[in-house]
Every structure is written in C-alpha cells, then in structure tokens.
C-alpha cells in the first residue's frame, strides 16, 4: 500500500466527517421539518465512529477500506440512513479494484446507486438521497468529470428536492406537507460530495 493512498483515504474521511459534523444541526433541522429529526445526530455519530476507526481503516486497500467505512455506518448510524449510506460505501468497496481508475470509480458509483435504490425501495424523484446521487453520477457518466461541476450539480440537485413530494421514508407520511423542504439525505449527500471534491482537487 502506498503512503499516498493511506494519506488520501485519511483526508477523504476527515473532510467528509468534518462537513457532516459542522452541518449536523442543519441536517437535524431539515429532518425535523419532514422526518423524525435524527438525521444530523445519527450521521454525526456514524462519522465519529469512522474517524475513531481511521487508523485501522486507512491502511487497508480501497475495497476493504470502503467496505469498512460502510459497515461502520451500518452499525453506528441507525435510522434508515445507516443502511442506505452503509450500502453505498460497501458496494463501492465491492465493485472497485485495488488500484481503481476514474472509469472504475464511475462504474462503481453506478453500482452503488443501484444497491441503495434496492435497499431503500426508492426511485429518483421520491425526494431521497438518490435525487442527488443519480444526477451527479449521470453527469460523470456523460463525460463531464470537472470537480467543480460535480459539486455544483450536487447542490442544484439537493435544492431541487424542495418542490418534490416525499414518496419514501418517514417524510412520505406527510404527503403534500413534505413539499417545500429540502430532503435531509439529499443535503448530506451534497455535503459529502463537496468534501470529497475538495480533497480530490488538492491531489489532482
């Protein structure tokens, strides 16, 4: 395992955890509007656990590292976000080779989305994290790999969940009253994408 790989994995976790921790209250407030109000605190607990495990996780090759991150989120986040984000990272780990290329990453991202979709029994347009993940990956698949463009797409897509009516998750109980609020899972996805992009820009 290269030193750069270990440093990159540490930087990615640190940046992702930092943004989740900084925005935990905002995520909880979004979830209080249309869910059960635990998204921020749950995600915070999950990422704190990943950070606590980082010295053991970061030296592992990409597939095992990502599976480890996913498993920690599954065990520590609770809510529906734990299995959803956990499945996302575990599938990335399962799909990536040890020395992944950009093409490998995009292909693995698509597989991870398919797995999240199956786990949550949700489709794009249901006001979930998929409404950020799907358009972002579609843009990458279309050949636009600009990191700023990826972040912009993620933020636009999370904003675009506001007018949607929730079909899945606790927010779906609210029916039309879920309209007008941003989906918390979409917001946390956009935050994580921005954090990952910041780290990748430094190494690119």
């Amino acid at each position: 395992m290269t030193e750069q790989g270990v440093a990159l994995r540490k930087a990615l976790v640190a940046a992702t955890a930092k943004t989740i921790l900084e925005h935990a209250e905002e995520l909880t407030a979004l979830d209080q509007a249309i869910g059960d109000g635990d998204h921020g605190i749950n995600m915070k607990r999950g990422f704190e656990a990943v950070v606590a495990d980082l010295d053991a996780l970061a030296p592992k090759p990409w597939p095992d590292f990502l599976k480890g991150v996913g498993m920690t989120l599954v065990m520590k986040v609770g809510g529906a976000s734990g299995p959803l984000f956990g499945t996302f990272f575990m599938t990335l780990g399962k799909e990536l080779p040890i020395g992944p290329t950009a093409d490998d990453v995009i292909r693995a991202l698509r597989a991870a989305i398919v797995a999240v979709q199956a786990r949550g029994k949700a489709e794009p347009g249901h006001k979930t994290l998929l409404d950020v993940l799907v358009p972002v990956v579609e843009q990458l698949e279309a050949g636009n790999r600009n990191l700023d463009g990826m972040v912009q797409k993620a933020h636009e897509a999370s904003e675009a969940t506001k007018p949607l009516k929730a079909i899945r998750g606790r927010a779906s109980f609210l029916g039309d009253r879920s309209i007008g609020h941003m989906d918390p899972g979409a917001r946390s996805s956009a935050l994580m994408i921005a954090a990952v992009a910041d780290v990748l820009k430094e190494v690119a």
Partner: peptide, 12 residues
C-alpha cells in the same frame, strides 16, 4: 432503540 439508545433501530 438506535445505537445510542434513542428512538430508532440498530442492525447490531
């Protein structure tokens, strides 16, 4: 209850 003992569920 979730992993912290609040309302929620835990895989473990």
């Amino acid at each position: 209850g979730d992993p912290a003992g609040n309302l929620g569920t835990s895989v473990e």
